[in-house]
Design a protein around this nucleic acid. Structure first.
Lengths: 377, 377
DNA sequence: TCGCGCATGTACAACGTTGTAAAGGTGAAG
DNA sequence: CTTCACCTTTACAACGTTGTACATGCGCGA
């Protein structure tokens, strides 16, 4: 038996509305959904009751029937790494276009948490996952037991059965280092190598760095490649200190992300080295902070909005079944944003504009272009 | 009629497991929940099947019965404002202790979106909301039609019927400005005043600024108070330019958040003004960036972790019914972190440590202290 | 005038889970 | 040997929604 009227917590169900309006539950449901075959008299009356009682559909019940929640998860290492915060913003915005809400998971780069993300902690509660792995490598990914559609960001995992969106990290790193070489720098260090075997992104950036040096006929000196535990400012500062100790005459440094670069610049400042006078610095990610630092930071600018859009659209295609092909490998474009930390020229506009940019066109501009992403199965 | 075996998408239900194990659905459910009165033989057998079939409970169904989802929403203006990213991190972490997942809503400070957050877009899908309003004022809040427990952050809305967690903004602002005055500065500007009537936080910080000046026997010159549209670096730079135009001899500036301060410092640099030599700068929020900027930034450091904990615990108390009292008004502590942008003394440790801090004890240390928050009904 | 078709509205079942109540089975106590 | 108690397991209903199938009633054409 059910008491008349809405339940204890003031929650109104279709049934409550139906009772009050003197129609069946299904009719109310039909009105809510704008089903055509409802007389306008009935519609008006029911709608009035709906408004009056402030009816809100119960998404849990709806989900139970439809097996669709309208939630997708975005799993990133840390929200307060600006790169991920900015990325999250774009993902949230793109998801909105599909009527989705984004649930954000912070893995802290811990393998166990990443494993949970992949194997569906919140099974049935989320329709899909966009995942930026840090600790998880090919092995863990392949062992995945969950069936929720998954899109990987940032790191390519061999030929795993996963959709994947990234930029061409090797090319980006090479272009960044080429830029340093074009300025006449010859003792170029690198900060951000990762010792953990799983980190594909770091390895790719290392490769690009080495390719650029080799391409210019310069040796790749392992002493100038400083690994870090993580990608925070403090790591960049510590690594820069180490680099200076190893080679006091280093004249440029390529950092694998902007935070490392900002930490490195801070340390250079404390050690009395001028940037770029003594040491030129390039970062990676183009976080907003680098446009306001002193000096402003030259950096690789991945198209975050595009990355977010590609990832969300790919998920959408998997969800509505419009894409049943094998795993996709999509590439987003990037640019090199040249600023004071390499050129020393302060553009110094009346108000600091978001930096001078030298567009370096993406390595594969065609296929990665708008609307027709590359697919490699 | 139901086909035997798991459904089309490989989703395994209790029923599938029960069929395979030759027991009733409820027995499987009992095993899943570790119910005591299950023979160990049955338990072992069922558990084996559970593992084998990789059963995952359907949270939607569970929610439908229990009316609890284990999801809470955190609604903030922008995720890539570092303050909110850092806060989000803490909230996620605290929520974890309660077994909750955090769903993040980005309102962009738009009234319409804030209204949706309050009135339960995702009704029944979230158990509670932690909300940092920007556009919504007392009027909108009071009109709220949803019954989901809500905790407000950062801004006090009159005597509205809402739980609320904040720091003492007036005191914090006053201490920041007192610090500038104690350094001998006498022409102190303020950046970040908000023209929209709803912004309580900005008004409180303005008040603290005025109180400090008045307390030192100085006049409050409206020309030195520059409003901004929002709280980004660009706003800070633009406002600083305006402030210099109005009073070229300004010797200090109190910014209502760190991003404004960083933008202001950038502009001062471009105009050739030394910080703190010519102009001392104080920010608000203590985002990590300010510990690595050049110069490092003196700022008010609200205890974000505490804020997050108080908010989450308060929500928990409302949810489990252990707190049915009237609305709570909780206060978190803060400190003034004194760094180079006011003192000019570079501590210059081997690696930049997270700043020299001068603890300014919270104005109401007792009641705001650990575990026994103030309550004002 | 009768019957057909369409517009409108309804009953029912099912999604997967869990609380309740009760049934079946076993052993011990009388 | 009977009975009772308890341990174990099960059937059932309900959470709120929506797709399917069907009932009702009206107007229109034959």
């Amino acid at each position: 038996m059910r008491a008349t009227g809405p339940g204890a917590r003031g929650v109104v169900s279709l049934r409550d509305v139906a009772d009050r309006a003197g129609v069946s539950i299904k009719t109310v449901s039909n009105v809510v959904h704008g089903y055509v075959h409802v007389s306008s008299a009935t519609r008006t009356r029911v709608q009035a009751v709906l408004d009056e009682m402030n009816y809100r559909p119960n998404l849990a019940a709806r989900t139970l029937r439809s097996a669709r929640t309208g939630l997708i998860a975005l799993a990133v290492p840390e929200l307060d790494l600006p790169y991920f915060a900015e990325l999250a913003r774009h993902v949230v915005r793109e998801a909105e276009r599909h009527g989705w809400t984004v649930l954000i998971d912070q893995t802290d780069g811990q393998l166990e948490r990443e494993r949970q993300v992949m194997n569906g902690i919140r099974a049935h509660l989320i329709d899909g996952v966009i995942f930026s792995p840090l600790a998880a490598g090919p092995a863990e990914l392949t062992d995945r037991e969950d069936h929720t559609p998954l899109v990987l960001l940032g790191e390519r995992v061999y030929d795993g059965p996963f959709d994947h969106v990234a930029i061409d990290n090797i090319a980006a790193a090479r272009i960044a280092v080429d830029h340093l070489l074009s300025l006449g720098r010859r003792r170029v260090g690198a900060i951000g190598e990762q010792n953990r075997p799983s980190s594909g992104t770091a390895r790719l950036r290392s490769q690009g760095y080495a390719q650029a040096l080799t391409g210019a006929g310069l040796p790749v000196d392992p002493a100038r490649i400083v690994p870090t535990d993580s990608y925070h400012r403090a790591d960049g500062a510590a690594a820069m200190a180490q680099l200076l100790d190893r080679d006091p005459d280093v004249d440029a440094v390529f950092c694998f992300n902007d935070l490392l670069a900002l930490g490195a610049m801070r340390l250079l400042h404390e050690r009395g080295r001028a940037v770029p006078g003594d040491v030129a610095v390039v970062g990676f990610d183009d976080i907003e902070e680098g446009r306001y630092s002193t000096p402003t930071l030259t950096t690789v600018r991945p198209d975050k909005e595009r990355i977010a859009r590609l990832a969300v659209d790919l998920l959408a295609a998997r969800l509505d079944g419009s894409d049943t092909q094998g795993p996709r490998e999509l590439t987003a474009p990037f640019e090199l944003a040249v600023r004071e930390s390499t050129t020393g020229v302060s553009a110094a506009p009346p108000t600091p504009s978001p930096a001078v940019r030298t567009g370096a066109s993406p390595r594969r501009p065609g296929p990665a272009g708008r609307g027709s992403p590359t697919s490699r199965t």
